[in-house]
Design a protein around this nucleic acid. Sequence first.
DNA 1: CCTACGATCGTCT
DNA 2: GACGATCGTAGGT
Length: 195
Amino acid sequence: MPGLAEQLAGPVLEVAPRLLGGVLRRGDVAVRLTEVEAYDGPADPGSHAHRGRTERNAVMFGPAGRLYVYFTYGMHHCCNVVVGDEGDPAAVLLRAGEVIDGLEVARGRRGSSSDRDLARGPARLCQALGIDRSDDGADLASDDLRLELREAPPGEVRTGPRVGLRLAADLPWRFWLDGEPSVSAYRPAVVRPRR
DNA sequence: CCTACGATCGTCT
DNA sequence: GACGATCGTAGGT
């Protein structure tokens, strides 16, 4: 049985769909992943690593199997699984999942929300699992935070454009499990009027 | 079901 | 100083 880092070592476009159906656990709460997005290296204009290494995205340049967590919109956290070779900033954004364990704890963290929406969307998924910037760089093979992949994703894998990006919005680098209620709605990037 | 909009601040230019 | 890998709510269909 290969270790997590080995399973995540390949090209991000191959690894990303294999995360579907996998389970991310923190303490009592476990989420089964139903939707992810690939961010492929410095050449990907949609990636935080597109303009090179900074203090924020440093973890993306590290070894596979760690968590890259960023803070956005002044109030939300989103998390990625770092994949590929060290030095190559590839990552997979965890966009949505189904809470399969620790429902009570997840509900408490999420406030009023239907069970279906507990981890539906990247910021909600982080909130349900209690993930924030202090988890940036966390080892996903640790006891506190653990990612377990399955042999094959159940159900059918679909692909389409990534959500909320102005750049490279045409690339079909979002992957989800067909028919899952927890898959987030597709929203094209909002173009703000000039102020 | 849908579309529109404001919140709120770290990060990068 | 501008913008964002988002979300919750409000209001219409």
